[in-house]
Simulated scan of single mutants.
Amino acid sequence: MSRRAVALVVAAVALCVGCTSGSTPFARTTAGATPDGRSTTVSAPSSSTSGSVAPPTEQGRFTMAFAGDVHFMDQVGERLARDPATVFGADAAMLRGADLTMVNLETAITTGGDPQNKLFTFRAPPSALTALRDAGVDVATMANNHGADYGDAGLRDTFAAIASSHFPVLGIGPDADHAFAPYRTTLHGVKVAIFAADQVQDETTLPLFSAGPHKAGVANAYEPRLITAVRRSVAAGYVTVVYLHWGIEYRTCPSTDQTSLASALAAAGASAVIGTHAHVLQGAGWLPGGTYVAYGLGNYLWWRTFGNEQDDNGVLTLDFDHAQVVGARFAPSHLTDSGVSPPATGAERRRILAEWDADRRCTDLAATPPH
């Protein structure tokens, strides 16, 4: 076996251990307090609230928080180089309140590799994973159109960084089995599984780097195995959540690909479907059967500001009562020149909340859970 093959096998084992076994160091069993001592009592930042808010400390009830796109280029990279523990700044307080917090990590984890033939290529050193953990993020997806920006060498570096960091990353792997593997944990006595996949049809990532039986890459959301995996997860007794990279850039309304996949995942039993990619907020709410869908959460930790709605984002916290999402709270934030998105206040907060609610109008989603 070649040295390259050995490296991929080692990374494959580490990735599998990190994402699929509830008994591994990556798994997180929450009952009153997290392993690092953080309280599981959810803070209540200024937010838009839909549905009844479940008491987060009761058995069977738990919270999950989601933010959008994160990467570490330019001024954010400079912050990372100075101190990974402080990259997110004031944002960290918004991320630490839930029982589990997840973001989309939109970058290759490498200092080498070969940039692909595309307009933007993103990469970050392994300390990016340290920054996520220190900010209160528990798991990230790399199933997106930038996870393979630095080719096969960048993928190998990414797998090695994930393995050495013991930070759980979904949606990418040395083969399809690992890319489609869920992160599993237990929250307040409830078994939870999270899947991630990429639905963005760019010219490089899905055509060249969709994970296959013997090919490294990202989980391709167009493959039927995503729906099959969710159905099996639900049948095995897991509350199942899916985080997707999807949508058409700069459009606040979901595409037909988005709505079709959301409906299929809901039919398979997913309790929540979360997404990002469009660089703007998209609509969120409940499907008639009770699945909560958030089509787009915007740019959260980003390398530049735009002076328009692309700077609007927020942290979405979902309240679960076992498999049901019974409440949703959106805490608006706004991207600054430093690359971070502190909580919005005053008129800016009211404007973003109105935008969040207005984006629901072009969806078939309800503002409150079905009764």
Rank of each mutant, 00 (worst) to 15 (best):
Y150N: 03
T107V: 01
T111C: 06
Q59R: 14
R38V: 08
N117S: 11
N117K: 10
V70N: 04
T57W: 04
L95G: 03
G97K: 11
M102W: 03
D69Q: 04
R79H: 07
T141S: 12
P115I: 05
T40Y: 08
A93M: 04
P45D: 10
P35V: 12
G77V: 12
L132H: 02
L129P: 00
L80M: 09
P45L: 05
I109Y: 04
G68P: 00
A153V: 07
T40N: 15
A148G: 03
H146M: 03
P25H: 07
R38A: 13
V103G: 03
G136V: 04
R133G: 05
Q59E: 12
T29M: 09
M73I: 07
P55F: 06
L80S: 09
M73N: 12
V137C: 03
G22K: 10
T57Q: 14
L132W: 00
D36M: 08
G60W: 12
A90D: 14
K118D: 04
M73G: 08
T41W: 10
L100K: 06
T121E: 05
T141E: 01
E78K: 13
P56T: 14
A67S: 12
I109T: 07
R123T: 04
A92L: 08
R79F: 05
V137E: 00
Y150L: 04
D149I: 09
T121L: 00
A85N: 14
Y150F: 10
P55S: 13
D74Y: 14
P115Q: 11
R28K: 15
S46D: 13
K118N: 05
E58Y: 10
A33Y: 10
R96Y: 04
D83F: 08
E78F: 08
S50Y: 14
E106G: 02
P126A: 05
T86D: 08
D134H: 10
T110I: 02
T130F: 00
F122W: 04
L129C: 03
A54R: 15
L105D: 01
E58W: 10
T29Q: 14
G112P: 05
T121Q: 07
A44C: 12
A67Y: 01
T30L: 15
T29F: 11
V137R: 01
P84L: 11
